[in-house]
Amino acid sequence: MSTQSPQAPSARSAEARPAEARPAEPRFIDSVSLVAGREITMRLRSKAFLISTGILMLAVLASVVLGSLFGGQSDPAKVAVVGAAASAVEGNPALDPVPVDDEAAGEQLLRDGEVEAVISPEASDPLGIAVTGLDQTPSGVVQALAVVPTVELLEPAAVDPGLAYLVAFGFGIVFFMSAITFGSTIAQSVVEEKQTRVVEILLSTVSARALLTGKVIGNSVLAFGQIVAIAVLAIAGLMLTGQKVLLGGLGDSVIWFVVFFAVGFVMLAALFAASAAMVSRAEDMGSVTTPVTMLVMIPYFLVIFFFDDPTVLGIMSYVPFSAPVGMPVRIFLDQAEWWEPILSLAILVATTALAVALGERIYRNTLLKTGSRVPLGEALRG
């Protein structure tokens, strides 16, 4: 009498059941979207992020206002001119004359706020004119009428040095604060997930590559959005303050700055995440992220101290970590040829691809290692 093994149907069922019951593995793009959305939502709910963004916006507005004060880009002052006094104002680019019949008509315009001062003939004055203000001396009008000697420059600067410094400072501080803010956020997130062992749960659902890609993309979107908002705010401020000449010269450099920053931050984000994955405690995060932080700080200080040095700026514009600052400043100063930004961007893209590949390898090899700091050589070998 032969008996059939009762385990055979069960075995067949066990072979068939996993294929039917096994949940579909999420696609890479779906995992990345999930992680990126989580990063964006968490940052937008953070008070620290909102406060730092507000401070950065105020710094940009301050730079625009200071540029208006020191750049000399304001509209000509309107003045009421009486009779023969028009000859003293004619051809003066700082004054916009409004002819009137007599002093009474000019004073009425002054009281109505239509003009800043009244200029009328005065026989007893050495210049033959008199200036009338409303409640205080119209210093701008008086300065525009002042007699100054002819000044010649052997090597005139294309851009006012004070204005060039403000533009360099603006690019430097925006790059520095945005990169440090979002780079530190990525590093802190990686260490917290390792320290709380949440990363083990995450890796049971998504791959290490998807987790890193989502973090980089999510924070890059926020950083890019912040930079675009700052650029729009700066352009609007320039238009409202009447700095049309500066706006025309700054437009191209702002566009290139946004492009360079978008690529450069991806590189920095990958390096911040990879560095943080090498440690398991928040106390050790500073020791591994310091080299990346220095790569952000050095361009900031270089552009502040050497904004008027073509040689230093030229070198900075081709070094990937400083190109997002150096090249836009050179474009504003009209020191770069048309092909230089393209070449510099190509170098930055290639460096970013290499940094992302190395960062992904380090991140994947060290993410589940706890305890002491993982040496760089071991992190690369896996």
Score class of each variant (00 low, 15 high):
V82F: 06
A144N: 08
L95Q: 11
L154R: 15
W339I: 12
S372K: 12
I180Y: 01
L154A: 14
L166D: 02
R22Q: 15
E378V: 12
V319N: 03
V131F: 12
V319F: 14
E360S: 10
A117N: 10
S275L: 00
S189G: 06
S178V: 13
L367S: 04
S2T: 11
G170H: 04
D160Y: 01
K194C: 01
G172E: 05
P328L: 00
T352V: 04
F175Y: 15
L50I: 09
V221T: 14
L44K: 13
A104D: 15
V141R: 06
T185G: 13
G106M: 06
L211I: 00
Q195Y: 04
V118Y: 08
T196Q: 10
R197P: 15
G371R: 05
A262H: 06
I51G: 10
A277Q: 11
N365M: 00
F171S: 15
S46T: 09
A144D: 07
E15F: 08
D252W: 09
F257D: 04
A336W: 07
R361W: 07
P6I: 00
R209F: 12
A85D: 13
G225Y: 03
L44H: 05
P320F: 00
E15D: 13
N219W: 04
F265D: 02
I304G: 02
V191I: 12
P97H: 11
A24P: 08
P156S: 07
M177K: 02
A85N: 14
A355T: 05
E122H: 14
A85F: 08
I362Y: 14
T213C: 10
D102Q: 05
Q195C: 04
P26S: 01
S253R: 05
R209W: 14
M177N: 04
V190K: 05
P23W: 06
T289I: 15
V263E: 06
A14P: 04
R197C: 09
M278W: 01
E283F: 08
F305T: 11
A231S: 12
I255W: 09
L302D: 01
L127A: 13
A355I: 00
Q108S: 13
G251V: 09
A16Y: 07
R22L: 14
A94K: 12
E155R: 12
A62W: 09
V259N: 02
V312R: 02
V296D: 01
S317Q: 04
L250A: 11
A11E: 10
R330K: 14
S317V: 00
G251N: 07
F257Y: 14
V100C: 14
G170P: 06
E200Q: 10
M239Q: 13
G218T: 11
F70Y: 13
A48C: 08
A346Y: 06
A187M: 00
G359A: 07
D160E: 10
L163Q: 10
M285V: 09
